[in-house]
C-alpha cells in the first residue's frame, strides 16, 4: 500500500478551524434515455452550480446509464406538503410572458420525484396551484422549480462512459460467477442460490 496509508500519524492537539465548504445544496435529476422523464437521483453540496453540474455527472451520472442531468439549488423549489388526501389546486391558462416552471411529482410517500411537465405562470403560488390541478391527480406531493434556475448538461456532453462499464455493475459478473460455481455445486443448487440472490437481496 502507499506509504502514507501505512504510516503512523502525529497530530496537533487541536483540529484546524472548521470550514464550511457546503456553500450550495443542489438537487439532482437524471434522464436515462432521450425523451424519458427526469427522475430525482440525489443531492450534493458544491460551491456553485457549474461545479455542482460536474459533480452530478461524475457521481449520479455514473451510477447507471444516463443521457442528461438537471439540477437546481434547493432553495429555488416550491412544494406542496406531502398529503394522503387529494391536493387542492386550481388551474389557470399559461401566460407566455411569465416564468416557466418545471413540475415534478411524488406518487407515493417514499417515492422519488419524477418530471411531469411545465406550467408558465407569474408567481409561485398560482404556478404551484396550477401544477397541482394539471399534474397532481393521485400524487402525494407536487414540486415546481423555475426553469431558468435549473442547470442542464449540454446536449452532446458525454456523461455515461463509452468504455466497458461492466466492472462496476452486478451484471458484469453474472456469467463469470455462474460458470465458476459449476465447479463447486450441482446445477439445481446454483439455481436455488441465484434465485435467493434476486428475490431476497437484490
Amino acid at each position: 500500500m502507499s506509504k502514507i496509508r501505512e504510516q503512523g500519524f502525529t497530530f496537533a492537539d487541536e483540529l484546524p478551524p472548521a470550514t464550511d465548504s457546503v456553500v450550495g445544496h443542489y438537487v439532482v435529476y437524471t434522464q436515462k434515455k432521450e425523451g424519458a422523464p427526469h427522475r430525482y437521483a440525489g443531492w450534493l453540496n458544491a460551491p456553485d452550480i457549474d461545479m455542482a453540474t460536474q459533480y452530478a455527472c461524475e457521481h449520479y451520472g455514473q451510477d447507471e446509464s444516463c443521457v442528461n442531468i438537471w439540477l437546481h439549488d434547493r432553495s429555488r423549489m416550491h412544494e406542496t406538503p406531502v398529503s394522503d388526501t387529494p391536493l387542492p389546486g386550481e388551474d389557470a391558462p399559461d401566460d407566455p410572458g411569465a416564468t416557466a416552471w418545471t413540475v415534478f411529482t411524488q406518487k407515493r410517500r417514499g417515492d422519488i420525484h419524477v418530471e411531469q411537465g411545465q406550467v408558465q405562470l407569474g408567481d409561485e403560488k398560482t404556478a404551484l396551484s396550477a401544477a397541482v390541478a394539471r399534474f397532481g391527480q393521485g400524487m402525494t406531493q407536487v414540486r415546481i422549480v423555475p426553469r431558468d434556475s435549473m442547470a442542464s448538461t449540454e446536449v452532446d456532453r458525454v456523461i455515461w462512459r463509452t468504455h466497458d462499464q461492466g466492472y462496476r455493475l452486478a451484471k458484469g459478473y453474472s456469467k463469470s460467477v455462474r460458470a465458476k460455481w459449476d465447479a463447486f455445486r450441482k446445477t439445481e443448487d446454483i439455481e436455488e442460490y441465484r434465485k435467493d440472490d434476486i428475490e431476497n437481496h437484490f
Binding site: A41, D63, V82, R109, R168, Y173, S174, S176, V177, K180
Partner: peptide
C-alpha cells in the same frame, strides 16, 4: 423514514455489484 428509504434503495442497487464482484473474487 422517506429520505432514508430512498437513499437505501439507491445504495442497494449499487451494492449488488460489490457483492457480485466479491463472490467472483472468492470463486476465482
Amino acid at each position: 423514514f422517506g429520505p432514508y428509504v430512498r437513499t437505501m434503495h439507491r445504495i442497494n442497487m449499487e451494492e449488488a455489484f460489490h457483492f457480485k464482484s466479491g463472490e467472483d473474487m472468492v470463486l476465482t
